[in-house]
Design a binder for these strands. Sequence first.
DNA 1: TTGAAAGCGCTAACAG
DNA 2: CTGTTAGCGCTTTCAA
Lengths: 349, 349
Amino acid sequence: MQGADHTARTTLADVASHVGVSVMTVSRVVNDRPGVGSGTRERVRVAIAELGYRPNIVARGLKVERSRTIGLLVPDVTNPYFPEIVRGAEDVAIRRGYILLLTNVIEDVDREVAAFEAFEDRRVEGVIACSPRLDDERLDALLRRHPAAVVVNRRTRPDAAGSVRIDHEHGARMLLRHLAAIGCRRLALLAGPTDSHAGRERLLGFAHEAQERGVELASERVLHGPPTVEGGTRLARELLERDPSVDALVCFNDLVAAGALQAASEIGRAVPDDLVVTGYDDILFARMFTPALTTVHAPTYDLGRQAATMLFDRMQGRGRGIDIVLQPELVLRASSARPTAPYPERTPR
Amino acid sequence: MQGADHTARTTLADVASHVGVSVMTVSRVVNDRPGVGSGTRERVRVAIAELGYRPNIVARGLKVERSRTIGLLVPDVTNPYFPEIVRGAEDVAIRRGYILLLTNVIEDVDREVAAFEAFEDRRVEGVIACSPRLDDERLDALLRRHPAAVVVNRRTRPDAAGSVRIDHEHGARMLLRHLAAIGCRRLALLAGPTDSHAGRERLLGFAHEAQERGVELASERVLHGPPTVEGGTRLARELLERDPSVDALVCFNDLVAAGALQAASEIGRAVPDDLVVTGYDDILFARMFTPALTTVHAPTYDLGRQAATMLFDRMQGRGRGIDIVLQPELVLRASSARPTAPYPERTPR
DNA sequence: TTGAAAGCGCTAACAG
DNA sequence: CTGTTAGCGCTTTCAA
């Protein structure tokens, strides 16, 4: 035990007896409810300030189901893609007097399930889940146990959760169109985890567009791996050694691309002249890589904001089954700068 | 309202009546407590699984003061320095069945106070506060209201909170010694927010070491600003225009350094030949800047881990007033590569 | 305008 | 080994 203040927390009853009224009167004042004379109200206010009373949200939550807390599940805040989402969600939560229970699930399904349960046990009022690896059925079951839920970068049954997504298929198509335009013909994909929903959508976009453009995208040049710098380095090295004819590495995200750039430089492949490398997400540092990274900008802060806004709507029983799709934006930088393509440039929306 | 499952949550009483025992028996089984026959215990276990019962931590917390939740206060998860701390703290929390209430306080004192209050209202069992901007007295008062607390990168009265810190003065000294060794003589500091404790310690280290080494460190070349890329760009531009004779920009952190590198390149100063730039923290991307950034590696994951471990100790009444100091490490990279200094190299501990 | 009673789901303390 | 009672701090309901 340390400082004494935290013990013997002052309660509604303390305030009540101090003023000489009932707990109900104090409760009414605390919650700004009618039915208290203005004189009494004032005296209670003074006492509250004097005693430093703060309502016990836990106790309140037992009676009325309001913990003023929402759960946010992300794969890994260490991946710069996610902190912006956290900030977006938190900014709207704070404004409404809510606070976030955060869990990193580290690409680990068990930890994902545990996180949902931990949220449930603490009676969060809603959950925002960022692209969990769980299969649809299990995710649905978990989501349904919560009063309200929103999934990010994924869809579910609209009665289980709302969804906010980025149109990754479109992002992938834009990217591939660009690669085709600058003359890349033998692409390889460093495609991230097999169970990533966003990854699957992008794969779809790449595949469709490749077919339409006559670009080769052989399945033996689609490698899956962890969405990290190390993963990128390893996969890129492997691939470039096995198949040096590849002329572009299309990476799952900017981290993987960073790893790929590293591998390319080790192996002695010059980017972009000898090998084009692209990322995805447009994290803050993508422009500072060497060379600066061509990538697809994902509006992450907005993703978090919209997800939280939708969640609050659903918590109030409104906005059932809404699915918001945000548009990404192609960002051209030096890592894909070829004479045939103007550079630098931002594609029009 | 959406999926029906979350309503009518099954309670201890439900399980009890289903098995035909009292709630206490069920409670004992749930908490793995003795005093239940193995037959009964088994039947209760089955019923719990069957009904999908999960204990209500909120209700439990009302009786015994245990929310199984700890509060973590960080300036901004968007700054890559902090996510590692979050991960470190979370990893030990999860292992003990705890979960984190996270708040970004965005260099905003009001939001900091609000965060402490929000934690208090939700009866967290402990708080980890990462370098808040609050003055000592106010911070102390807030910390004392919690059952246990640990501050990161700052000290307090040991009865108010434990502390886990990085020896920033030493880090600053190492950096400055290196700069002196490679011949830098007119340093400028892009020093971050004035109210940053870590920043003040570094300033002290720089000042002391500069004096001892006969390096000039004039106060008009110590500029304060936000710890962001934009802040770095703005300050560096300002400074280099006003005073082109500066031969090294010593930045508050790697983000500021990233901004400084950008400014230098805009203005046409070649790094490192014409201008040396250094960072602090050694975020993941520091090595990928152009040129790769000389910086001071801060063991952030460990910082979070140690802070959480200490917090749990304090929650159990042990480890009162401990102050852990972790050592940083100088990391030499291209942004300070001068002929007089070997490169690349890691300094010995 | 005010207050008394009951109960949210759980556990500590005691009784059988 | 099992159950009963009381109460954590609050709010809802009903009565004065």
